[in-house]
Design a protein around this nucleic acid. Structure first.
Length: 469
RNA sequence: GGAGCCAUCGCCAAGCGGUAAGGCCGCAGCCUGCAAAGCUGCUAUCCCCGGUUCAAAUCCGGGUGGCUCCUCCA
């Protein structure tokens, strides 16, 4: 396995802290609204990583947090009059449903900030005790970036001279412009506050990830140099979020946070980053109303995770066509039971994914397998061994990439209700009769009716099959 | 103002110094009553200008264009 490390900016062989194991932590969503396609892409990217490592026989432990204490959540509390818990638990449920719909394997650990307060407090206290953090008059606690000689190693964005060059004006009692809040003191009676020795307040954004990783991935920390193997998230988190996480963890624990850092590219709409502030975000739940989750999954995963992804309906339809081909092949071999995966096929797929998740090559390998197998069945439709192997191949695709698991006939009937189904079957039956009588004018006319209904048909040796377009 | 990323066939997209994968679309053919599906074949010298090298889409320098980060953000 090779992984592109966004800190070293190069592809590195994956050598985990512990042989045969892989610990991954991905920054999850702040739960104040529904997940958009960008969240989907991030989840999908690291889902592929996890599946690939599992296929390579690593014992994977995947963690993804829910940020459930945050300014925007508090704002939502004020706006709606609902409790913070009502809001966050609602969106956490929605998030999990949406992710399940696109085939994301549930992480092993899903920590929440509200359930990690002790760990957060401990880490901040440690930093204060080590004089790497300071409490200002208001009760806010800041991390002192000047005390960390490695601050900047992650994002390479902290220059020597710089500072007031930033287009953001910093005005506070911070000692250094780059210092960031570990803890925000209570602002008033209505604020969400937790008591700690340093002040009553709530955690800053960055500290939760460091604390959760420390809490949930607590290796013995003997001679181990890193807390986890891989830390992931969107490219926008590299700075300041990950830089700050790394600094906190390094200074509090004496260990580097992660051995490898991976960042996924953005989903764009018309060439611009999808984001709420630009008003161009596309909620996953809305996309799922129009497109099947499996098709969305194939589509959003069809471009390498590090590249930006420009969403277009036209390209999504192209992805569906490629997925369709896999299911058409599956129709030829279903129902049945798989035997063993073709070794060459399996190796080619794994080789592709082992190269920093080269999905393009992987999909090309699948397309090739589909064409070759179809060709073989065109020559010999009754090749039983090949049928079993093909089923096994498709099962492997599903395990590794997360698509192809549906019953193939039902895949082509998504969106067809019982009434329409009965109508289609009647028409097909009438058409078959017409064909037997060589009344082709009639049979073609029926076919046109079906096409008008969005149904395409194909005559095979086993009768007429139909598909919803 | 500072820091990065990207630019490959009509569209999407691999490539990581050794002579351009794959998909969609299009064209031709096989199959079919005709189709559809499936299969086969055909279609690019890599934004521009310099340089390094026996050899560059791939490395270096300079342009041009697009995107992102430095503020919440996947």
């Amino acid at each position: 396995m090779h992984i592109y490390d966004s800190v070293q900016k190069t592809k590195l062989p994956f050598a985990p802290i512990r042989k045969g194991e892989a610990s991954i932590y991905v920054c999850g969503p702040t739960v104040y609204d529904d997940a958009h396609l960008g969240h989907a892409r991030s989840s999908l990217s690291f889902d592929l990583l996890s599946r690939t490592l599992k296929a390579l026989n690593y014992k994977v432990t995947m963690g993804k947090n829910f940020t459930d204490i945050d300014d925007k959540i508090i704002k939502k509390v004020e706006e709606t009059g609902k409790s913070m818990d009502e809001i966050t638990s609602f969106y956490i449920e929605r998030y999990l449903e949406d992710m399940a719909a696109i085939g994301i394997q549930r992480p092993d650990i899903e920590p929440k900030a509200t359930e990690s307060l002790q760990a957060i407090e401990n880490m901040i206290q440690t930093l204060i005790d080590k004089d790497m953090a300071y409490v200002i008059d208001s009760g806010d606690v800041y991390f002192d970036t000047s005390k960390d000689s490695h601050y900047g190693d992650i994002s390479h964005q902290v220059g020597e001279d710089e500072d007031n060059q930033s287009r953001v004006v910093h005005t506070s009692e911070k000692r250094n412009p780059k210092d960031f809040a570990l803890w925000k003191a209570c602002k008033g009676n209505d604020d969400i506050c937790y008591d700690t020795p340093f002040s009553s307040g709530r955690p800053g954004w960055h500290i939760e990830c460091s604390a959760m990783i420390e809490k949930h991935f607590s290796h013995a920390h003997g001679t181990e140099e890193y807390s986890i193997d891989i830390h992931g998230g969107g490219a926008d988190l590299l700075f300041p979020h990950h830089e700050n996480e790394a600094a906190q963890s390094r200074c509090a624990t004496g260990h580097e946070l992660a051995k490898y850092w991976m960042h996924n590219g953005f989903v764009q709409i018309d060439g611009e980053k999808m984001s709420k502030s630009l008003g161009n975000s596309f909620f996953l739940k809305d996309a799922l109303k129009v497109y099947d989750g499996e098709v969305l999954r194939y589509y959003l995963n069809s471009v390498h995770y590090r590249n930006d992804f420009n969403f277009s309906e036209e390209e999504l339809l192209t992805s569906k066509k490629r997925l369709d081909k896999i299911y058409r092949l599956k129709k030829r071999v279903s129902p049945g039971k798989g035997s063993a995966v073709n070794k060459t096929f399996k190796k080619s797929l794994l080789d592709a994914m082992s190269d920093d998740l080269n999905i393009s090559i992987a999909l090309a390998v699948i397309d090739d397998m589909v064409a070759t197998t179809n060709d073989a069945f065109d020559t010999n439709p009754k090749n039983k061994a090949l049928k079993k192997e093909t089923l096994a191949n498709i099962e492997f695709i599903d395990a590794l990439l997360g698509f192809g698991s549906k019953e193939p006939f039902s895949y082509f009937q998504i969106g067809v209700d019982e009434t329409l189904k009965a109508q289609i079957e009647t028409l097909i039956s009438e058409r078959s009769d017409a064909k037997k009588e060589k009344n082709f004018e009639r049979s073609d006319s029926i076919r046109n009716e079906l096409i008008a209904l969005g149904i395409s048909i194909m005559d095979t040796a086993d009768g007429t099959l139909w598909e919803k377009a």
